[in-house]
Amino acid sequence: MKTLNVNGKSVQFDGDEDTPLLWALREQLGLTGTKYGCGISACGACTVHVDGEAVRSCVYPVAAIENEKITTIEGLSKDGTHPVQQAWAELDVPQCGFCQPGMMMAVAAMLKDNPTATDADIDETITNICRCGTFARVRKGIHLAKKKL
């Protein structure tokens, strides 16, 4: 049994600690907003925050977590009003939406570190895959979110 701090709450995880955080979140804790897309840290659909840092949870074992605070898309804001969520809503960014929780978590972490992120910063930091191809609106969304920070 391991205690994890997820979205501001203490939760008990009683599975194998080799389990990647992604599957602990999805299958033990019922937080299915974090998605499985590749399992090899290539696509970013599973991005969550560990102590505010963007982490690809599909290759991040529960065993590696000590007291860090984990934030998932469900905990990004209480009511969907994080600046990134607001910008995404305003611009209708998602298409199928499956990659967007990971995309938004990656963007939110970037803007926390770098609230004035430039296009070059975006190109370097945001490497999530979106097969629907929302990149044009993701970029606009990031610049809009900056204004709402």
């Binding site: 907003g33 998605k35 939406g97």
Partner: peptide, 18 residues
């Protein structure tokens, strides 16, 4: 605006995998 955006922004939308 799309009618299906809101739940895609909070992780609330259940896809088949969820």
């Amino acid at each position: 605006k799309r009618l299906d955006t809101a739940k895609k922004l909070t992780g609330e939308l259940k896809y088949g995998a969820d």
